[in-house]
């Protein structure tokens, strides 16, 4: 290899520096683009829908005339579905996490198998869960197109997430806590219910809130299990038919009449704000439980 002359190597150095700077700016530009996209999206939603957010929007049913329509029935449906989903999935999810983290001290073939299952389930498209719900809850269990069928479907959808987050939270509880309570004469179950789970509560709650926000935001599986876009009554029991906020949005988006577009945008603003609120509560709890530990 020929040795570079002084001028050549200086030129090479300049070029390498230039490439270095260009690459750095490229990465920065990508990050700026990502943030800009977020701002543009939010700006577009506010521009389209903010004017429609009035008190009556929250207190009226989805009328055929866009000027009078509101999101009362869809908010009620979303709350029903979210609360029921959490009631089903939280105990089951925590118990499953406790089994995987506390009762099985070493990896057996069974726990390995369950773990692989959970990992694969969280990658299954949400609409496939809807088809499971259609086949099992709607048809075989004959729950028809009820809130209960929707909530059960949604529970299975968010279950892997609740288990994974709870497992992480249980893992973070120091081993010495368990050993101390066992040494005091607690049974394993007492150690779990009175020491380990209470100490993991911060992390578990974060998972619960994230599961709740997922349950509010998902639409596709509920369409498959028979939620409808247009409901002008408030559901009174778990056997009633229902709509949810994202489905109401979907219904308004797909209507050709012009007046429904701002309605959809307004409902989206409400939905995103609700999710934002839930997520900030989750972040707050996470920060507090971290500072305590």
């Amino acid at each position: 290899m020929r040795q570079l002359t002084r001028a050549e190597s200086a030129a090479l150095l300049v070029r390498r520096r230039r490439i270095d700077q260009a690459f750095g700016s490229l990465c920065l530009v990508a990050a700026v683009i990502a943030v800009t996209i977020l701002f543009v999206l939010v700006g577009k939603l506010l521009a389209d829908g903010a004017s429609r957010i009035r008190p009556e929007f929250f207190t009226s049913f989805p009328m055929p005339k866009p000027e009078e329509a509101g999101i009362l029935s869809s908010i009620a449906g979303s709350l029903w579905v979210m609360v029921l989903t959490l009631l089903i999935t939280v105990p089951v999810g925590i118990a499953a996490a406790v089994y995987l983290e506390e009762f099985t001290t070493r990896k057996t073939r069974m726990t390995e198998f369950i773990q692989v299952n959970i990992a694969n389930l969280s990658g299954v498209p949400s609409i496939v869960f809807g088809m499971l719900g259609l086949g099992v809850f709607v048809a075989v269990m004959d729950l028809k197109f009820s809130i209960l069928a929707g909530a059960l479907t949604m529970s299975i959808l968010v279950l892997p997430m609740v288990i994974l987050v709870s497992q992480e939270a249980l893992k973070a509880v120091p081993r010495s806590y368990r050993e101390a309570s066992l040494a005091m004469g607690c049974t394993k179950w007492q150690a779990i219910t009175k020491v380990v789970v209470p100490n993991a509560m911060g992390g578990i709650l974060t998972g619960v809130i994230l599961a709740g926000s997922r349950a509010i935001g998902e639409t596709a599986p509920l369409i498959v299990v028979g939620a409808v876009g247009y409901v002008n009554f408030l559901p009174k029991s778990v056997h009633d038919r229902y709509t949810v906020l994202p489905l109401q949005i979907f219904d308004w988006i797909t209507r050709p009449a012009a007046g429904f577009k701002p309605l959809a945008a307004a409902a989206i603003i409400v939905l995103v704000l609700a999710l934002l609120l839930l997520n900030s509560v989750a972040i707050f709890i996470r920060a507090r439980s971290q500072s305590k530990a």
């Binding site: 990502a34 996209i37 977020l38 999206l41 577009k44 939603l45 926000s213 509010i216 935001g217 998902e218 639409t219 596709a220 994202p246 489905l247 949005i249 979907f250 988006i253 959809a264 945008a265 989206i268 939905l271 995103v272 999710l275 934002l276 997520n279």
Partner: peptide, 13 residues
């Protein structure tokens, strides 16, 4: 935040 926005919203956009 971007990851938490529901799918139906992206449809609208």
């Amino acid at each position: 935040l971007l990851a938490g926005i529901p799918s139906v919203v992206f449809g609208y956009l």
